[in-house]
């Protein structure tokens, strides 16, 4: 009975914590978006110019047609991975696929938290918040020191390193997760590799390629689980 009460308390506490994050998250996103949009107008007002409405609409149409569907897919896929707090923060601070998602997955794994649990949500929020703070700090210091840093960071010698941060990230993570569940990874890996070789347009549209690759992996994972052949992952 006492254990049950403790369990209820924990869930009540967590629900109220989540309600607070929802409210704050929405306010935070609205304020930040309004401020970012205002930036363009205020910057123009300083020099007596304004954004060109026709150019804006034409540009937005071209950008939106690609990026709004991608954003919707990212939301549907990543929000369950990140939970409430992690989602608000990650969609506010950006760099999802190349930083926030791998960072949250890594933290979740190290902490041993399980999807859909309060622990997982807390770990993911802490991880995304820490990551965003560090990125902001590095970018801020980098911008302040841009003049002395520019020759170093733009040097031809170091260029291959900075151009290949994302391959390094997914090489390391790919191995880690392929070892974790080779049965899920094998067929999608072969199919996607063949697709990238024979349909070169897929290579440059990774944001879109994630959808078939992810769906294949989820389908195989669920199927193997139902057949009892997946084991623990």
């Amino acid at each position: 009975m006492r254990e049950e009460e403790k369990h209820m308390d924990k869930h009540e506490y967590f629900s109220s914590y989540n309600r607070q994050l929802h409210l704050l998250g929405k306010i935070m996103l609205c304020v930040s978006f309004a401020a970012m949009i205002a930036f363009s107008f205020v910057a123009g007002a300083i020099y007596d110019v304004a954004p060109d409405l026709g150019g804006f609409l034409s540009g937005l149409l071209q950008v939106g047609i690609i990026y709004y569907p991608v954003a919707l897919v990212e939301f549907l896929v990543y929000a369950p991975m990140l939970g409430v707090g992690g989602s608000y923060l990650a969609f506010l601070t950006g760099n999802l696929t190349n930083l926030k998602i791998p960072c949250a997955m890594n933290a979740r794994e190290i902490a041993g938290a399980k999807t859909g649990t309060p622990e997982n949500e807390i770990i993911s929020t802490i991880s995304v918040a820490t990551s965003a703070i560090i990125t902001t700090a590095i970018l801020s210091v980098g911008v302040m020191l841009m003049t002395p840093l520019q020759p170093l960071l733009s040097s031809e010698v170091l260029k291959p390193a900075f151009e290949n941060v994302v391959p390094a990230l997914f090489g390391a993570f790919g191995l880690k997760y392929y070892l974790k569940s080779p049965k899920i990874a094998l067929a999608p890996f072969v199919v996607m590799t063949l697709l990238c070789i024979f349909v070169p347009a897929v290579q440059s549209n990774t944001s879109i390629a994630i959808i078939p690759a992810g769906l294949m992996c989820i389908g195989i994972g669920v199927l193997l689980d139902k057949m009892g052949k997946l084991g623990d992952i």
Binding site: F189, T193, S204, A209, M216, C217
Partner: peptide, 15 residues
Amino acid sequence: MVAMFIGLCTAYISS
């Protein structure tokens, strides 16, 4: 979640 992440890695590595 794990499968989706494997899919994410696969999309990049195969590219």
